[in-house]
Amino acid sequence: MGLFADLRDSISAVTAKLFAGESEDPKRIGIYGPPNAGKTTLANRIARDWTGDAVGPESHIPHETRRARRKENVEIERDGHTVSIDIVDTPGVTTKVDYEEFLDHDMEKDEAVRRSREATEGVAEAMHWLREDVDGVIYVLDSTTDPFTQVNTMLIGIIESRDLPVLILANKTDLEDSNVQRIRNAFPQHETIELSALEGENMDEVYDRIAEKFG
């Protein structure tokens, strides 16, 4: 009988360890932002740099990412220690989705409508994730566009209201009309890091900040 008691104790000890371990699981970092800000490019850059795999296909067509895609256990090494995060690439958040914008990209109407519907579902999913499943946010903005938009203001507001740690990335610095200062001015309360996810520019600083913020 003592054997059973020991066995039970050891099982409960293991279970306790498991649950304790769960709280130290990698933090789930959501990559959020408007469509075509370069979220998937960044997610792929991070995933390739640290795991060798990609997260998903990148595209110039908006709403290429219509389902949140997760890359788990991305271990980022900084200054000798490792920060483990789950990266969630989310569909671009917007308040309007119209299939007609896809028609310009050589798409049949049926396909455009389907894509539009999926994108809408993706936004709903992204918003739902933001509510429940995200421990921190990397907010990606296209530095060639005006950051003062309803979507950006609303999302940053939600993130702030949840007290989530957030990094703002001013992406596409490789483009001529990139204006990082405009983004810094828009969200002075948050740290803004410039980068080109496509070219891999300034990624070292991005990883430093990720490790600091979410480690």
Partner: peptide, 26 residues
């Protein structure tokens, strides 16, 4: 989510964020 027409949608982000149930398909 307001369906204006097939393939045309308006999204109420705050409502999507606030609601407990999760819309998985339109």
């Amino acid at each position: 989510i307001k369906v204006l027409a097939p393939g045309q949608y308006e999204l109420n982000l705050m409502e999507l964020y606030d609601r407990e149930e999760y819309i998985i398909a339109l």
